[in-house]
């Protein structure tokens, strides 16, 4: 059975980059959020297993979403995909519970490797 997946990014192109990297059979169960607030609403009302999360977004950013997930005590595997590649930022998102950090533009093999690494594939 394919897991429930949420992709959160303010860029349509970036969302498509993630989507096309996913296994074909997952694609029907993918939800989309264009910003942090939308993501938190979807996360609250659905049981999302895997979240692909951008950091730099207007309004509630990726850090805000990670904090929200902690506050709501959600059990969700988060993979951050960001252009903000500073080592301090990578450490920060991991400290906030993200499984992995991937730099943009995301490459399909890196994404699939990371899913495998965490037993999600």
């Amino acid at each position: 059975m394919s897991p429930s997946v949420l992709i959160c990014d303010d860029s349509n192109m970036a969302r498509k980059q993630v989507l096309r990297s996913l296994p074909e059979e997952w694609k029907d169960s993918v939800q989309i959020a264009c910003n942090g607030a939308e993501a938190l609403t979807i996360l609250r009302d659905n049981s999302i297993e895997i979240l692909f999360l951008d950091l730099t977004m207007p309004g509630i950013d990726g850090i805000g979403v990670l904090q929200g997930i902690q506050k709501l005590k959600l059990n969700c595997s988060v993979f951050v995909i960001s252009a903000d590649i500073q080592p301090e930022m990578q450490n920060k998102v991991k400290a906030l519970g993200a499984k992995e950090f991937m730099r943009k533009p995301v490459q399909a093999d890196a994404l699939l490797n990371n899913l495998q690494l965490h037993g999600l594939l």
Binding site: S11, M13, A14, T56, S82, A83, D84, I85, Q86, R103, K104, P105
Partner: peptide
Amino acid sequence: QELINIAMGQASD
């Protein structure tokens, strides 16, 4: 915008 975000991210780094 996305190309610029990526370029900006690396410039900031």
